[in-house]
Amino acid sequence: MKKKLTAVDFRGTPEQEAKLLAVIEKYRGVKGAMMPILQEAQEIYGYLPPEVQKIIAEKTGTPLEEIYGIATFYSQFKLNPSGEVAISICLGTACYVKGAAAVLEEVSKQLGVEVGGISPDGRYSLEATRCVGACGLAPVMVINNEVYGKMTADQVASVLAKYKA
């Protein structure tokens, strides 16, 4: 699934930036350090905003394109933060066969958020995940660690209603 560029504004703090710079300093001179730098940057910020990628590019002398290439290649890296309401829908085999794609499409339609994206106000984020290990409940939707099993497209509206701001 192609990653979506983030739609929310950067809200990084000076404390986060100080942590990031310390991480970069820790790996100075270490070959092949871009993966751990990006992983730790994601731990600090929760995702890899463009502003953070630019800091890493500048401080490590790496072309920004290369960093963006890595960030979009590995599924572990997120270009978008999780929303206040973080929705993930399992597209593992069992869920998929039981119609998870239709649920995903319905959520995306109702919230106006693309898969892998976030609403501009930062409220809703939507992700498609691999098997979450609850195949007996397929198709499964998880919102902020709350599990909704045996979902159908018809039930989407009533579930989402609980999370209205």
Binding site: K2, L5, P63, E65, Y68, T72, Y74
Partner: peptide, 21 residues
């Protein structure tokens, strides 16, 4: 040593492009 184009995204979506498209 300019480095403005490179492979971005993955699999079928891979293309040669710039950072943040």
């Amino acid at each position: 040593a300019v480095g403005v184009i490179g492979a971005i995204n993955r699999g079928f979506d891979t293309e040669i492009g710039c950072a943040f498209e």
